[in-house]
Design a protein around this nucleic acid. Structure first.
Lengths: 234, 234
DNA sequence: AGAATAGTGTCTTTCAGACATTATGTT
DNA sequence: AACATAATGTCTGAAAGACACTATTCT
Protein backbone atom coordinates (compact mmCIF):
# COMPACT_ATOMS: atom_id res chain seq x y z
CA UNK A 1 0.00 0.00 0.00
CA UNK A 2 2.99 2.31 0.08
CA UNK A 3 2.99 5.17 -2.41
CA UNK A 4 -0.64 4.58 -3.06
CA UNK A 5 -3.23 7.30 -2.68
CA UNK A 6 -4.40 7.53 0.88
CA UNK A 7 -7.94 6.31 1.44
CA UNK A 8 -9.43 7.69 4.63
CA UNK A 9 -12.45 5.43 4.42
CA UNK A 10 -10.27 2.46 5.23
CA UNK A 11 -9.80 3.70 8.78
CA UNK A 12 -12.50 3.14 11.33
CA UNK A 13 -14.58 6.11 12.43
CA UNK A 14 -14.61 7.12 16.06
CA UNK A 15 -16.29 9.97 17.84
CA UNK A 16 -14.12 11.82 20.33
CA UNK A 17 -15.53 13.55 23.38
CA UNK A 18 -14.13 15.81 26.05
CA UNK A 19 -15.40 14.95 29.52
CA UNK A 20 -14.72 17.23 32.44
CA UNK A 21 -14.07 16.64 36.10
CA UNK A 22 -14.53 20.15 37.45
CA UNK A 23 -13.66 20.61 41.10
CA UNK A 24 -14.25 23.66 43.23
CA UNK A 25 -14.77 24.45 46.89
CA UNK A 26 -18.22 25.46 48.01
CA UNK A 27 -18.83 26.16 51.68
CA UNK A 28 -15.64 24.41 52.60
CA UNK A 29 -16.46 21.20 50.75
CA UNK A 30 -14.90 19.79 47.62
CA UNK A 31 -17.59 19.80 44.94
CA UNK A 32 -17.86 18.45 41.42
CA UNK A 33 -20.18 19.66 38.67
CA UNK A 34 -22.62 17.08 37.35
CA UNK A 35 -25.32 17.45 34.73
CA UNK A 36 -28.49 15.44 34.53
CA UNK A 37 -28.91 13.90 31.13
CA UNK A 38 -31.92 15.14 29.18
CA UNK A 39 -31.70 12.56 26.41
CA UNK A 40 -30.79 8.91 25.95
CA UNK A 41 -28.63 7.09 26.62
CA UNK A 42 -28.75 7.23 30.41
CA UNK A 43 -31.57 9.77 30.27
CA UNK A 44 -32.23 11.16 33.73
CA UNK A 45 -28.92 10.00 35.14
CA UNK A 46 -26.21 12.29 36.42
CA UNK A 47 -23.06 12.55 34.36
CA UNK A 48 -19.90 14.57 34.01
CA UNK A 49 -20.25 17.56 31.72
CA UNK A 50 -18.75 17.10 28.29
CA UNK A 51 -19.47 16.77 24.64
CA UNK A 52 -18.22 15.90 21.22
CA UNK A 53 -14.98 17.30 19.92
CA UNK A 54 -15.38 19.07 16.59
CA UNK A 55 -13.40 17.82 13.65
CA UNK A 56 -11.43 21.04 13.24
CA UNK A 57 -10.81 21.62 16.91
CA UNK A 58 -7.86 20.79 19.12
CA UNK A 59 -8.84 18.39 21.88
CA UNK A 60 -7.79 20.89 24.55
CA UNK A 61 -9.80 23.60 22.80
CA UNK A 62 -12.86 21.38 22.93
CA UNK A 63 -12.36 20.94 26.66
CA UNK A 64 -12.31 24.72 27.13
CA UNK A 65 -15.38 25.09 24.91
CA UNK A 66 -17.34 22.55 26.94
CA UNK A 67 -16.15 24.27 30.10
CA UNK A 68 -17.69 27.51 28.87
CA UNK A 69 -20.86 25.97 27.46
CA UNK A 70 -21.68 23.61 30.28
CA UNK A 71 -20.25 25.36 33.30
CA UNK A 72 -20.03 29.01 32.26
CA UNK A 73 -16.35 28.98 33.10
CA UNK A 74 -13.71 30.84 31.11
CA UNK A 75 -10.10 29.89 30.44
CA UNK A 76 -8.76 32.21 33.11
CA UNK A 77 -11.04 30.82 35.79
CA UNK A 78 -9.56 27.35 36.03
CA UNK A 79 -6.43 25.30 35.80
CA UNK A 80 -7.02 22.60 33.20
CA UNK A 81 -5.01 19.44 32.76
CA UNK A 82 -5.49 16.27 30.82
CA UNK A 83 -6.54 13.39 33.04
CA UNK A 84 -6.71 10.23 30.95
CA UNK A 85 -8.44 8.76 27.93
CA UNK A 86 -11.19 6.18 28.23
CA UNK A 87 -11.93 3.98 25.26
CA UNK A 88 -13.67 0.70 26.05
CA UNK A 89 -15.58 -0.33 22.92
CA UNK A 90 -18.95 -0.48 24.69
CA UNK A 91 -18.65 2.58 26.91
CA UNK A 92 -21.27 4.43 24.86
CA UNK A 93 -24.16 2.34 23.50
CA UNK A 94 -24.70 4.67 20.54
CA UNK A 95 -21.40 4.28 18.77
CA UNK A 96 -17.70 3.99 19.29
CA UNK A 97 -16.65 6.91 21.43
CA UNK A 98 -13.24 7.65 22.84
CA UNK A 99 -13.37 10.13 25.69
CA UNK A 100 -10.47 12.36 26.62
CA UNK A 101 -11.09 13.34 30.23
CA UNK A 102 -9.83 16.60 31.72
CA UNK A 103 -9.39 17.84 35.25
CA UNK A 104 -10.39 21.46 35.90
CA UNK A 105 -9.76 23.19 39.22
CA UNK A 106 -11.20 26.56 40.08
CA UNK A 107 -11.99 28.93 42.91
CA UNK A 108 -15.58 29.53 43.81
CA UNK A 109 -17.06 28.70 40.41
CA UNK A 110 -20.50 30.05 39.50
CA UNK A 111 -23.79 28.39 40.32
CA UNK A 112 -24.65 25.75 37.78
CA UNK A 113 -27.34 26.22 35.15
CA UNK A 114 -28.61 23.55 32.81
CA UNK A 115 -27.16 23.86 29.31
CA UNK A 116 -28.44 22.65 25.96
CA UNK A 117 -28.81 18.91 26.37
CA UNK A 118 -29.04 18.86 30.13
CA UNK A 119 -32.16 18.55 32.23
CA UNK A 120 -30.34 19.98 35.21
CA UNK A 121 -26.86 20.92 36.41
CA UNK A 122 -25.67 20.91 39.98
CA UNK A 123 -22.62 21.06 42.20
CA UNK A 124 -22.36 17.91 44.31
CA UNK A 125 -20.11 17.32 47.26
CA UNK A 126 -17.67 14.75 45.95
CA UNK A 127 -18.56 12.08 48.52
CA UNK A 128 -22.20 12.34 47.48
CA UNK A 129 -21.31 12.24 43.80
CA UNK A 130 -19.34 9.05 44.35
CA UNK A 131 -22.46 7.42 45.77
CA UNK A 132 -24.55 8.22 42.72
CA UNK A 133 -24.87 5.80 39.86
CA UNK A 134 -23.32 7.97 37.17
CA UNK A 135 -23.82 7.53 33.43
CA UNK A 136 -21.27 5.79 31.20
CA UNK A 137 -17.95 5.09 32.94
CA UNK A 138 -18.08 8.44 34.68
CA UNK A 139 -17.78 6.89 38.12
CA UNK A 140 -14.34 5.66 37.13
CA UNK A 141 -13.38 8.99 35.61
CA UNK A 142 -14.48 10.85 38.72
CA UNK A 143 -12.52 8.48 40.93
CA UNK A 144 -9.42 8.91 38.80
CA UNK A 145 -9.85 12.68 38.79
CA UNK A 146 -10.17 12.82 42.55
CA UNK A 147 -7.05 10.76 43.05
CA UNK A 148 -5.16 12.93 40.57
CA UNK A 149 -6.24 16.11 42.33
CA UNK A 150 -5.27 14.68 45.70
CA UNK A 151 -1.83 13.67 44.60
CA UNK A 152 -1.18 16.89 42.72
CA UNK A 153 -1.63 18.80 45.95
CA UNK A 154 1.37 16.97 47.34
CA UNK A 155 3.90 17.75 44.66
CA UNK A 156 2.59 20.86 42.96
CA UNK A 157 1.24 24.25 43.90
CA UNK A 158 -2.18 23.76 42.27
CA UNK A 159 -3.93 24.10 45.59
CA UNK A 160 -3.86 27.83 44.89
CA UNK A 161 -6.22 27.23 41.97
CA UNK A 162 -8.97 26.70 44.54
CA UNK A 163 -8.67 30.10 46.21
CA UNK A 164 -8.94 33.68 45.04
CA UNK A 165 -5.96 35.96 45.46
CA UNK A 166 -4.99 37.26 47.84
CA UNK A 167 -5.48 34.42 50.28
CA UNK A 168 -4.40 33.41 53.75
CA UNK A 169 -2.53 30.34 54.91
CA UNK A 170 -5.69 29.28 56.69
CA UNK A 171 -7.67 29.39 53.46
CA UNK A 172 -5.01 27.35 51.73
CA UNK A 173 -5.10 24.82 54.53
CA UNK A 174 -8.86 24.55 54.11
CA UNK A 175 -8.22 23.55 50.49
CA UNK A 176 -5.91 20.72 51.49
CA UNK A 177 -8.32 19.54 54.16
CA UNK A 178 -11.30 19.57 51.80
CA UNK A 179 -9.54 17.80 48.95
CA UNK A 180 -7.83 15.22 51.11
CA UNK A 181 -10.75 14.81 53.47
CA UNK A 182 -8.44 15.05 56.47
CA UNK A 183 -7.49 17.52 59.15
CA UNK A 184 -4.04 19.04 59.17
CA UNK A 185 -2.10 20.55 62.05
CA UNK A 186 -2.31 24.30 61.41
CA UNK A 187 1.11 25.05 62.87
CA UNK A 188 3.07 22.48 60.92
CA UNK A 189 1.16 23.35 57.76
CA UNK A 190 1.96 27.02 58.22
CA UNK A 191 5.64 26.28 58.59
CA UNK A 192 5.72 24.01 55.56
CA UNK A 193 3.97 26.25 53.06
CA UNK A 194 5.73 29.43 54.12
CA UNK A 195 9.18 27.86 53.91
CA UNK A 196 8.59 25.89 50.68
CA UNK A 197 10.46 27.56 47.84
CA UNK A 198 8.46 30.15 45.89
CA UNK A 199 5.09 28.73 46.81
CA UNK A 200 3.67 31.85 48.41
CA UNK A 201 4.48 35.54 48.07
CA UNK A 202 3.54 37.92 50.85
CA UNK A 203 1.56 40.97 49.84
CA UNK A 204 2.25 42.84 53.05
CA UNK A 205 -1.48 43.16 53.65
CA UNK A 206 -3.44 41.54 56.43
CA UNK A 207 -7.03 40.60 56.85
CA UNK A 208 -9.41 39.59 59.56
CA UNK A 209 -12.06 37.39 58.07
CA UNK A 210 -13.78 35.81 61.04
CA UNK A 211 -12.82 35.97 64.63
CA UNK A 212 -9.15 35.79 65.42
CA UNK A 213 -5.90 37.53 64.81
CA UNK A 214 -5.64 39.02 61.31
CA UNK A 215 -3.83 36.79 58.86
CA UNK A 216 -1.17 37.76 56.37
CA UNK A 217 -2.25 37.76 52.74
CA UNK A 218 -0.39 35.96 49.99
CA UNK A 219 -0.47 35.54 46.23
CA UNK A 220 0.80 32.57 44.24
CA UNK A 221 4.54 32.27 43.78
CA UNK A 222 6.27 31.43 40.54
CA UNK A 223 6.84 27.71 40.98
CA UNK A 224 4.42 25.01 39.96
CA UNK A 225 6.58 22.35 41.60
CA UNK A 226 6.41 22.16 45.38
CA UNK A 227 9.69 21.73 47.23
CA UNK A 228 9.72 20.14 49.64
CA UNK A 229 6.48 18.31 48.97
CA UNK A 230 3.52 18.51 51.34
CA UNK A 231 2.79 14.84 51.88
CA UNK A 232 -0.47 13.24 52.88
CA UNK A 233 0.69 10.25 54.84
CA UNK A 234 3.34 9.78 57.50
CA UNK B 1 -33.24 16.56 19.64
CA UNK B 2 -34.14 14.68 22.79
CA UNK B 3 -36.03 11.41 22.31
CA UNK B 4 -35.19 11.44 18.67
CA UNK B 5 -33.53 8.49 16.98
CA UNK B 6 -29.78 8.76 17.33
CA UNK B 7 -27.97 9.61 14.13
CA UNK B 8 -24.31 8.64 14.28
CA UNK B 9 -23.53 10.44 11.03
CA UNK B 10 -24.00 13.76 12.77
CA UNK B 11 -20.86 13.21 14.81
CA UNK B 12 -17.52 13.90 13.23
CA UNK B 13 -15.32 10.94 12.31
CA UNK B 14 -11.91 10.60 13.86
CA UNK B 15 -9.29 7.94 13.52
CA UNK B 16 -7.70 6.80 16.76
CA UNK B 17 -4.17 5.48 16.96
CA UNK B 18 -2.05 3.89 19.66
CA UNK B 19 1.52 5.20 19.67
CA UNK B 20 4.13 3.56 21.82
CA UNK B 21 7.11 4.85 23.73
CA UNK B 22 8.93 1.60 24.44
CA UNK B 23 11.93 1.90 26.71
CA UNK B 24 14.44 -0.78 27.54
CA UNK B 25 18.05 -0.98 28.62
CA UNK B 26 20.59 -2.15 26.10
CA UNK B 27 24.24 -2.27 27.10
CA UNK B 28 23.54 -0.05 30.05
CA UNK B 29 21.85 2.68 28.03
CA UNK B 30 18.23 3.68 27.98
CA UNK B 31 16.90 2.92 24.51
CA UNK B 32 13.68 3.58 22.67
CA UNK B 33 12.28 1.67 19.71
CA UNK B 34 11.77 3.69 16.54
CA UNK B 35 10.55 2.57 13.15
CA UNK B 36 11.42 4.14 9.86
CA UNK B 37 8.33 5.00 7.91
CA UNK B 38 7.95 3.12 4.64
CA UNK B 39 5.05 5.18 3.32
CA UNK B 40 3.85 8.78 3.31
CA UNK B 41 3.38 10.92 5.22
CA UNK B 42 6.88 11.44 6.61
CA UNK B 43 8.19 8.60 4.45
CA UNK B 44 11.74 7.76 5.41
CA UNK B 45 11.53 9.52 8.75
CA UNK B 46 11.85 7.82 12.11
CA UNK B 47 8.72 7.54 14.21
CA UNK B 48 7.37 5.85 17.29
CA UNK B 49 5.78 2.48 16.59
CA UNK B 50 2.01 2.51 16.55
CA UNK B 51 -1.06 2.11 14.42
CA UNK B 52 -4.76 2.51 14.09
CA UNK B 53 -7.09 1.27 16.78
CA UNK B 54 -9.76 -1.08 15.44
CA UNK B 55 -13.34 -0.14 15.89
CA UNK B 56 -14.17 -3.14 18.07
CA UNK B 57 -11.03 -2.99 20.15
CA UNK B 58 -10.33 -1.47 23.53
CA UNK B 59 -7.69 1.24 23.29
CA UNK B 60 -5.42 -0.62 25.70
CA UNK B 61 -5.88 -3.80 23.67
CA UNK B 62 -4.76 -1.96 20.56
CA UNK B 63 -1.64 -0.82 22.38
CA UNK B 64 -0.81 -4.41 23.26
CA UNK B 65 -1.51 -5.51 19.69
CA UNK B 66 0.84 -2.89 18.26
CA UNK B 67 3.40 -3.88 20.85
CA UNK B 68 3.28 -7.45 19.54
CA UNK B 69 3.13 -6.54 15.85
CA UNK B 70 5.74 -3.83 15.79
CA UNK B 71 8.09 -4.86 18.56
CA UNK B 72 7.48 -8.58 18.98
CA UNK B 73 6.75 -7.99 22.63
CA UNK B 74 4.08 -9.89 24.58
CA UNK B 75 1.88 -8.66 27.43
CA UNK B 76 4.02 -10.32 30.06
CA UNK B 77 7.23 -8.75 28.80
CA UNK B 78 6.45 -5.14 29.64
CA UNK B 79 4.73 -2.81 32.04
CA UNK B 80 2.30 -0.69 30.02
CA UNK B 81 0.72 2.54 31.13
CA UNK B 82 -1.22 5.24 29.38
CA UNK B 83 0.89 8.32 28.80
CA UNK B 84 -1.28 11.04 27.30
CA UNK B 85 -3.47 11.76 24.31
CA UNK B 86 -2.39 14.02 21.47
CA UNK B 87 -5.02 15.57 19.27
CA UNK B 88 -3.98 18.72 17.45
CA UNK B 89 -6.14 18.98 14.32
CA UNK B 90 -3.17 19.04 11.95
CA UNK B 91 -0.94 16.49 13.59
CA UNK B 92 -1.53 14.03 10.75
CA UNK B 93 -1.83 15.51 7.25
CA UNK B 94 -4.02 12.66 6.00
CA UNK B 95 -7.01 13.08 8.24
CA UNK B 96 -8.09 13.88 11.74
CA UNK B 97 -6.24 11.51 14.03
CA UNK B 98 -6.25 11.41 17.80
CA UNK B 99 -3.35 9.48 19.21
CA UNK B 100 -3.41 7.78 22.58
CA UNK B 101 0.22 7.38 23.58
CA UNK B 102 1.42 4.59 25.86
CA UNK B 103 4.58 4.05 27.85
CA UNK B 104 5.99 0.51 27.82
CA UNK B 105 8.93 -0.52 29.97
CA UNK B 106 10.68 -3.85 29.57
CA UNK B 107 13.83 -5.76 30.38
CA UNK B 108 16.19 -6.54 27.58
CA UNK B 109 13.62 -6.52 24.78
CA UNK B 110 14.36 -8.39 21.54
CA UNK B 111 16.24 -6.98 18.60
CA UNK B 112 13.97 -4.93 16.39
CA UNK B 113 12.75 -6.15 13.01
CA UNK B 114 10.85 -4.10 10.49
CA UNK B 115 7.12 -4.83 10.52
CA UNK B 116 4.47 -4.41 7.87
CA UNK B 117 4.57 -0.71 7.03
CA UNK B 118 8.05 -0.03 8.27
CA UNK B 119 11.19 0.28 6.20
CA UNK B 120 13.32 -0.37 9.23
CA UNK B 121 13.10 -0.70 13.00
CA UNK B 122 15.84 0.07 15.45
CA UNK B 123 16.61 0.66 19.10
CA UNK B 124 18.07 4.13 19.61
CA UNK B 125 19.74 5.47 22.69
CA UNK B 126 17.28 8.03 23.97
CA UNK B 127 19.65 10.99 23.70
CA UNK B 128 20.22 10.15 20.04
CA UNK B 129 16.51 9.70 19.40
CA UNK B 130 15.85 13.15 20.85
CA UNK B 131 18.22 14.64 18.30
CA UNK B 132 16.41 13.08 15.36
CA UNK B 133 13.66 14.91 13.55
CA UNK B 134 10.85 12.49 14.27
CA UNK B 135 7.61 12.21 12.30
CA UNK B 136 4.35 13.81 13.44
CA UNK B 137 4.50 15.17 17.01
CA UNK B 138 6.52 12.18 18.13
CA UNK B 139 9.31 14.35 19.46
CA UNK B 140 6.89 15.75 21.99
CA UNK B 141 5.50 12.33 22.84
CA UNK B 142 8.98 10.93 23.37
CA UNK B 143 9.90 13.86 25.60
CA UNK B 144 6.76 13.40 27.66
CA UNK B 145 7.36 9.66 27.91
CA UNK B 146 10.90 10.16 29.11
CA UNK B 147 9.84 12.61 31.77
CA UNK B 148 7.10 10.26 32.90
CA UNK B 149 9.50 7.33 33.15
CA UNK B 150 11.98 9.43 35.08
CA UNK B 151 9.46 10.61 37.61
CA UNK B 152 7.86 7.19 38.01
CA UNK B 153 11.20 5.84 39.18
CA UNK B 154 11.00 8.20 42.12
CA UNK B 155 7.63 7.26 43.53
CA UNK B 156 6.99 3.75 42.23
CA UNK B 157 8.78 0.45 41.94
CA UNK B 158 8.65 0.27 38.12
CA UNK B 159 12.42 0.33 37.89
CA UNK B 160 12.18 -3.43 38.32
CA UNK B 161 10.44 -3.63 34.94
CA UNK B 162 13.82 -2.95 33.35
CA UNK B 163 15.62 -5.95 34.86
CA UNK B 164 15.07 -9.69 34.77
CA UNK B 165 14.51 -11.52 38.03
CA UNK B 166 16.40 -12.26 40.06
CA UNK B 167 18.49 -9.11 40.06
CA UNK B 168 21.08 -7.40 42.22
CA UNK B 169 21.00 -3.99 43.84
CA UNK B 170 23.79 -2.99 41.49
CA UNK B 171 21.67 -3.87 38.45
CA UNK B 172 18.79 -1.89 39.86
CA UNK B 173 21.04 1.08 40.42
CA UNK B 174 22.19 0.84 36.81
CA UNK B 175 18.54 1.26 35.81
CA UNK B 176 18.17 4.46 37.81
CA UNK B 177 21.44 5.80 36.46
CA UNK B 178 20.53 5.04 32.85
CA UNK B 179 17.02 6.47 33.02
CA UNK B 180 17.99 9.57 34.98
CA UNK B 181 21.29 10.04 33.18
CA UNK B 182 23.06 10.61 36.47
CA UNK B 183 25.37 8.75 38.79
CA UNK B 184 24.16 7.65 42.20
CA UNK B 185 26.13 6.90 45.32
CA UNK B 186 26.08 3.08 45.53
CA UNK B 187 26.09 2.99 49.32
CA UNK B 188 23.22 5.38 49.90
CA UNK B 189 21.26 3.75 47.11
CA UNK B 190 21.77 0.36 48.65
CA UNK B 191 20.51 1.55 52.00
CA UNK B 192 17.47 3.23 50.49
CA UNK B 193 16.19 0.40 48.32
CA UNK B 194 16.81 -2.31 50.88
CA UNK B 195 15.01 -0.44 53.64
CA UNK B 196 12.11 0.85 51.52
CA UNK B 197 8.97 -1.07 52.40
CA UNK B 198 8.32 -4.17 50.26
CA UNK B 199 10.37 -2.99 47.33
CA UNK B 200 12.76 -5.92 47.21
CA UNK B 201 12.54 -9.51 48.43
CA UNK B 202 15.74 -11.44 49.06
CA UNK B 203 15.97 -14.81 47.41
CA UNK B 204 18.82 -15.99 49.61
CA UNK B 205 20.95 -16.61 46.53
CA UNK B 206 24.05 -14.75 45.55
CA UNK B 207 25.79 -14.18 42.30
CA UNK B 208 29.08 -12.97 41.00
CA UNK B 209 28.59 -11.41 37.61
CA UNK B 210 31.83 -9.69 36.88
CA UNK B 211 34.63 -9.27 39.37
CA UNK B 212 33.99 -8.33 42.94
CA UNK B 213 32.15 -9.66 45.91
CA UNK B 214 29.07 -11.72 44.99
CA UNK B 215 25.85 -9.76 45.29
CA UNK B 216 22.62 -10.84 46.90
CA UNK B 217 19.77 -11.58 44.52
CA UNK B 218 16.32 -10.10 44.84
CA UNK B 219 12.90 -10.36 43.24
CA UNK B 220 10.23 -7.67 43.11
CA UNK B 221 8.26 -7.06 46.26
CA UNK B 222 4.53 -6.60 46.43
CA UNK B 223 4.26 -2.82 46.47
CA UNK B 224 4.02 -0.65 43.43
CA UNK B 225 4.30 2.51 45.55
CA UNK B 226 7.74 3.35 46.83
CA UNK B 227 8.03 4.48 50.45
CA UNK B 228 10.01 6.45 51.13
CA UNK B 229 10.54 7.74 47.62
CA UNK B 230 13.91 7.64 45.90
CA UNK B 231 14.30 11.23 44.82
CA UNK B 232 16.35 12.58 41.97
CA UNK B 233 17.36 15.97 43.26
CA UNK B 234 18.80 16.91 46.59
C1' DA C 1 48.67 -8.73 46.04
C1' DG C 2 45.64 -5.80 43.67
C1' DA C 3 41.40 -4.62 41.47
C1' DA C 4 36.60 -4.59 41.61
C1' DT C 5 32.19 -4.69 43.43
C1' DA C 6 29.08 -5.58 47.67
C1' DG C 7 27.66 -4.29 51.96
C1' DT C 8 27.79 -1.83 56.73
C1' DG C 9 28.41 2.09 59.61
C1' DT C 10 28.84 7.04 61.03
C1' DC C 11 28.09 11.89 60.93
C1' DT C 12 25.54 15.98 59.75
C1' DT C 13 21.67 18.33 57.91
C1' DT C 14 17.00 18.66 56.54
C1' DC C 15 12.43 17.92 57.33
C1' DA C 16 8.20 15.86 59.41
C1' DG C 17 5.04 15.40 63.32
C1' DA C 18 3.63 16.60 68.05
C1' DC C 19 2.62 20.18 70.76
C1' DA C 20 3.64 24.68 73.91
C1' DT C 21 3.50 29.46 73.73
C1' DT C 22 2.80 34.08 72.27
C1' DA C 23 0.27 37.61 69.26
C1' DT C 24 -3.72 40.15 67.90
C1' DG C 25 -7.91 40.66 66.49
C1' DT C 26 -13.60 40.22 67.56
C1' DT C 27 -17.63 39.80 70.71
C1' DA D 1 -12.60 39.08 79.89
C1' DA D 2 -13.36 35.29 76.89
C1' DC D 3 -12.65 33.43 72.60
C1' DA D 4 -10.77 32.50 68.15
C1' DT D 5 -7.43 32.27 64.84
C1' DA D 6 -2.49 33.51 63.43
C1' DA D 7 2.21 32.95 63.96
C1' DT D 8 6.50 31.35 66.13
C1' DG D 9 9.22 28.09 68.67
C1' DT D 10 10.89 23.58 70.60
C1' DC D 11 11.68 18.77 70.76
C1' DT D 12 12.17 14.22 68.66
C1' DG D 13 12.65 10.96 65.16
C1' DA D 14 13.00 9.72 60.15
C1' DA D 15 15.51 10.06 56.24
C1' DA D 16 19.01 12.12 52.94
C1' DG D 17 23.75 13.04 51.40
C1' DA D 18 28.69 12.55 52.15
C1' DC D 19 31.98 9.36 52.85
C1' DA D 20 35.11 5.79 55.78
C1' DC D 21 35.58 1.18 56.21
C1' DT D 22 35.01 -3.88 55.87
C1' DA D 23 33.83 -8.17 53.01
C1' DT D 24 34.41 -11.31 49.29
C1' DT D 25 35.23 -12.53 45.01
C1' DC D 26 38.36 -12.68 40.40
C1' DT D 27 42.79 -12.08 37.98
Amino acid sequence: MAKQTYDASKYPPFAVTADLVIFTLREGRLCVLLIQRGAPPFEGKWALPGGFTHVDEDIEESAYRELAEEAGVGEGDVVLEQLRTYGAPDRDPRMRVVSVAWLALGADLPEARAGSDAADAKWFAVDEALDLDLAFDHQQILTDGLERARSKLEYSTVATAFVREPFTVGELRAVYEAVWGTTIDPRNFHRKVTTAGNFLVETGERTARGGGRPARLYVKGLTSQLHPAVLRRG
